[in-house]
């Protein structure tokens, strides 16, 4: 610790010696370093200062009788246990609001939602892909075309994969769209679902 306050050196007089001893006691190492040498020279030549020193020394002895107790093992243990290692924060290229929002989230929940979202997306993609890939072509067509004339349609074997692919995009291949009007004679309401407003 550095001395931030630099007091002016006072002339060494009997009054100043009294002030020093009354404040700091008889131990010179407690006196201000800048005055110490002068004070000791002064004391060596002053009987009155030596009397002051003796009185102060007696009080110092009484003060030193107070035991310099060590903290109990229980206190040391509890303070040691207060150590909490810092949680490393991953480097984030985002600054400002994005960083703030990220840091606001509970630390323990930072990654689970990303993993969950990825798992859901993976599951949806796999589910749709598998259903479209392995389902019989007739099943797909029947869902869209309940017409009894379906068997007359010519579905090329290589077209199945295209059906699956286009179904994901919400668009039926031309061969499917051509069969749509056949629903008009059917009692199945499925074809009218698009007219029902979503609530």
């Amino acid at each position: 610790m550095t001395d931030q306050i630099k007091p002016q050196i006072k002339p060494m007089t009997q009054d100043r010696i009294r002030e020093l001893i009354e404040a700091y006691g008889a131990a010179p190492e407690r006196w201000p370093g800048r005055e110490r040498d002068l004070a000791m020279v002064f004391i060596a030549t002053s009987v009155e200062a030596q009397d002051l020193l003796k009185e102060a020394s007696a009080l110092d002895t009484a003060l030193n009788a107070l035991p310099m107790s060590e903290p109990s093992p229980a206190l040391r243990r509890s303070v040691l246990d207060a150590f909490t290692p810092p949680i490393p924060v991953a480097a984030n290229e985002n600054d400002g609001l994005v960083t703030t929002i990220t840091q606001w989230q509970p630390r323990s929940n930072r990654s689970w939602h990303k993993a969950a979202a990825a798992a859901v997306m993976f599951g949806v993609l796999c589910g749709v892909g598998i259903s479209q890939t392995f389902a019989p072509a007739s099943t797909v067509v029947l869902a869209q075309q309940p017409s009894p004339d379906f068997n007359q349609l010519i579905v090329e074997p290589g077209l199945e994969s295209n059906v699956a692919a286009l179904s994901l995009g919400g668009e039926l291949p031309a061969i499917m769209r051509d069969t749509a009007p056949q629903n008009e004679n059917s009692n199945d309401d499925v074809g009218d679902d698009s007219d029902i407003p979503l609530t």
Binding site: A26, A27, E48, L53
Partner: peptide
């Protein structure tokens, strides 16, 4: 008070 400096003066730091 005899004015003499205490024997244990200066005390240890």
């Amino acid at each position: 008070m005899d004015g003499s400096v205490p024997k244990n003066w200066p005390p240890p730091r």
